[in-house]
């Protein structure tokens, strides 16, 4: 009963937000209805879960407004790559999706379920920590600085959350953990501590760790920014593989070549807003907005052909 009511409430709120958004700044640049919608997943990805809807999200740090009403939809199995200058709010937006960052306004749903809040009456009440943690197990996250646990081996890093947060048996978690390390090409390094691994290897372990909870959505926060140039590709290759697997991916990155290859949708953000979004071809070859054009002219070297 209450779930149905909650759905109704949230869809009503969505409609209300829809009206206000058309007049908003995002509306002028995005699709006619104002919501930036990622391209549907292609046919070879039969994904049914992992629909992300971000609606009119606002966030301030002190007097600085870092997100000024951002709306974005990513369909199940979609790959959205968010690009933009530093300080544009990309990382903050990503961190609101698993409620590591609380929003000041707007809301986010995953497969229709509100993230971090529940509907009571006509208010959105923040969930208790326990319930938020449970939601987070459906959302994997990979950080710029890896954040592997240095006192645990690669395998122990991967199986920590399945054992502690999902209460799986140790044997089962180990078996699955080794499979995942194999998938990122590091099965033979299972017993190594993070400091004994290269940056690229550490980030691949971090990806395996995020996959261990079998998430519907994976968030990547500049996964290659802390890596030496020659290590970037080994990490991007793993993410490329994941893009074919049907998990919804939302990636913040500065790797434009990767964005062009892998993304269904490229989202360009600047100053806390989505300036424009579309397929890689649309955004890279034929940007509509001057801001987008001037950004790409700075980050894409002349030799890079679109």
């Amino acid at each position: 009963m209450s779930i149905i009511a909650a759905r109704k409430d949230s869809s009503a709120a969505a409609q209300a937000a829809e009206k206000t958004r058309t007049a908003g700044p995002a509306g002028s640049a995005g699709d006619p209805d104002g919501t930036t919608t990622a391209q549907p997943a292609s046919a070879d990805r039969p994904a049914t879960r992992g629909q992300v809807d971000i609606t009119n999200v606002r966030k301030s740090f002190g007097a600085t407004e870092v997100l000024k009403g951002v709306s974005l939809s990513v369909p199940p199995g979609g790959v959205a790559v968010i690009v933009g200058p530093s300080g544009s709010g990309k990382s903050t937006l990503l961190r609101t999706i698993n409620h590591l960052e609380k929003v000041d306004g707007g809301y986010i749903t995953i497969d229709g379920e509100l993230v971090g809040y529940e509907v009571r009456g006509n208010k959105l009440h923040e969930l208790r920590e326990k319930d938020i943690l449970k939601q987070r197990t459906h959302i994997g996250m990979v950080f710029q600085s890896f954040n592997l646990f240095p006192h645990l081996t690669a395998l122990e890093n991967v199986i920590e959350a399945p054992i502690v947060a999902q209460k799986r048996s140790k044997a089962e978690a180990r078996k699955r953990g080794l499979e995942l390390l194999d998938r990122v090409g590091l099965k033979d390094r299972a017993g190594a501590y993070p400091r004994q691994l290269s940056g690229g290897q550490q980030q691949r372990v971090a990806i395996a760790r995020a996959l261990a909870l079998d998430p519907k959505i994976l968030l990547f926060d500049e996964p290659t920014s802390a890596l030496d140039p020659e290590l970037v590709n080994e990490v991007l290759d793993v993410i490329r593989e994941l893009a074919k697997s049907g998990t919804t991916l939302i990636v913040v990155t500065h790797e434009m070549g990767f964005a062009r290859d892998v993304a269904d949708t490229v989202v360009f953000m600047d100053q806390g807003q989505i300036v424009e979004s579309g397929t890689p071809q649309e955004i890279f070859a034929n940007p509509r907005e001057e801001r987008t054009r001037s950004f790409f002219s700075k980050v894409i070297e002349p030799a890079f052909n679109i």
Partner: peptide
């Protein structure tokens, strides 16, 4: 970042 990573993994 250690605490952040742990809470992102849903560890209580």
């Amino acid at each position: 970042g250690q605490l952040e990573a742990a809470s992102a993994l849903g560890i209580p």
